[in-house]
């Protein structure tokens, strides 16, 4: 064979293999083709693609499938996209959408070192679950935050970071999508999703200590002691005290801040409020819990950029 013949033979044989393989692939693709509702793709494109699992499904694709399958969108809420997204999906699928209140995570513990002294040093793996399986915590309070950052790891949106000064996680409201991942990650069940209010204002009891007042107060200066003062002062019956622990129902709370004023241990956190006109007691302000989230602009309706 001359060189030219070799070249021609090569080209011919390689092309033949290529055509053969292509046709096999094509035939296979046709044979095993699975019909999928094109709207699934459409919905999926509209989704934030965070794959955070906040909706309760393993990923955005599954959620899209469920949206297409389901009769109503009532139980299918994507916390990341919020109501805007629900409306978009509703439009694509021609279904009705019910607006839901967006939520944001809060940390119900204010036990920074100045409020509760460490009585020992944890020296194991940096993992809240490992530590909580071992013992109650490095301070006297066995309910409080361990500060090892399981919630930080769980957050897909960089919305939580440990504040080095307080040793407690801080939630950045603008980034928090309310996907529930941190709530599930916390072995101490300290984090809670609460309804977003105007200007991201929040009032909540920043403590989950269920011990008797004296015991709780001994282990942490800003613990809820269950004195019921807030319950009495609340004009909206939003506060319930159970097991020496107050809880503010966010649906009833009108953010009047009366409870904050009466709380003897400053266990009730007020966040994103302007400073008060009539100052109650100056000393109390100093001891205010430090869970204050980063100041935020009005974002009651998170848009795409908040993803």
């Amino acid at each position: 064979m001359t060189e030219l013949q070799i070249i021609i033979a090569t080209i011919v044989s390689v092309s033949a293999i290529g055509i053969l393989a292509a046709s096999i692939l094509y035939a296979a693709a046709q044979k095993f083709k699975v019909f999928e509702d094109p709207r699934i793709d459409e919905v999926e494109d509209a989704l934030p693609s965070a794959n955070c699992g906040g909706c309760g499904y393993p990923g955005c694709r599954n959620y899209a499938e469920m949206c297409v399958k389901a009769d109503t969108l009532d139980d299918l809420y994507c916390p990341v996209g919020g109501n805007d997204l629900t409306a978009t999906i509703a439009k694509i699928l021609g279904k009705d959408a019910i607006a839901k209140a967006p939520k944001v995570a809060v940390l119900r513990c204010a036990g920074s070192p100045e409020h509760r002294a460490s009585i020992n040093v944890y020296d194991g793996a940096e993992n809240c679950k490992v530590a909580s399986a071992l013992y109650s915590g490095s301070t006297g309070c066995e309910f409080g935050c361990l500060g090892l950052g399981d919630c930080v790891v769980a957050c897909d949106f960089d919305a939580i970071a440990i504040n080095k000064e307080t040793g407690l996680p801080e939630i950045i409201d603008e980034k928090c999508t309310g996907c529930n991942a941190c709530v599930k990650a916390c072995p101490k069940l300290i984090l809670e999703l609460r309804k977003k209010a105007k200007k991201d204002r929040k009032i909540f009891v920043s403590c989950i200590n269920k011990e008797k007042g004296g015991v709780a107060k001994k282990s942490c200066a800003v613990a809820c002691i269950g004195c019921k003062k807030c319950q009495k002062v609340c004009p909206f019956d939003a506060i319930v005290v159970e097991n020496f622990l107050a809880y503010i129902d966010y649906d009833k709370c009108k953010l009047c801040r009366k409870c904050v004023d009466v709380c003897p241990t400053n266990a009730i956190a007020e966040i994103n409020f302007p400073p008060k006109k009539k100052k109650p007691v100056v000393a109390k302000e100093v001891a205010k819990p430090k869970v204050v989230a980063k100041k935020s602009v009005d974002k009651t309706n998170p848009t795409d950029e908040s993803k």
Partner: peptide
């Protein structure tokens, strides 16, 4: 005092 899971 230090606290850590076993082994020590």
């Amino acid at each position: 005092m230090k606290i850590s899971p076993s082994p020590h």
